[in-house]
């Protein structure tokens, strides 16, 4: 059996959707209930900056990957005489 590598991106995308929903919840709480002061704005700023950094480095590390490659999984071993 073989799968294309970009199937992994679908799984990643589904997890990111869940994550993004939780991020919106977190930002809503801070904007709606947080005090209007430097700490609140700095915390939100730091939170978003780190997210952007993680997203950027993820992109940089995955850029050279050939997502159209086919990967064989559960392949039958050819060296075993019993098969």
């Amino acid at each position: 059996m073989s799968i294309f590598l970009y199937y992994l991106l679908f799984v990643y995308g589904a997890l990111m959707l869940v994550w993004f929903a939780l991020v919106l919840v977190a930002l809503y709480h801070m904007f709606h209930y947080g005090y209007k002061n430097f700490t609140t704005f700095f915390a939100i700023f730091l939170f978003l900056i780190v997210i952007l950094a993680l997203a950027y480095y993820t992109y940089i590390l995955l850029a050279p990957v050939d997502w159209t490659a086919e990967i064989k999984i559960f392949s039958r071993p050819t060296s075993n005489p019993m098969f």
Binding site: L15, W19, H29, T39, A43, I51, L54, A55, T58
Partner: peptide, 28 residues
């Protein structure tokens, strides 16, 4: 390699979100 990178990306994004929620819980 791509599995490692994608897994690490998901993991660290969720952990960062978890840390932010800890701060929100303290701050609010």
């Amino acid at each position: 390699y791509p599995v490692l990178v994608l897994s690490a990306s998901v993991y660290f994004l969720f952990i960062w979100l978890f840390i932010f929620f800890q701060f929100i819980d303290y701050y609010l």
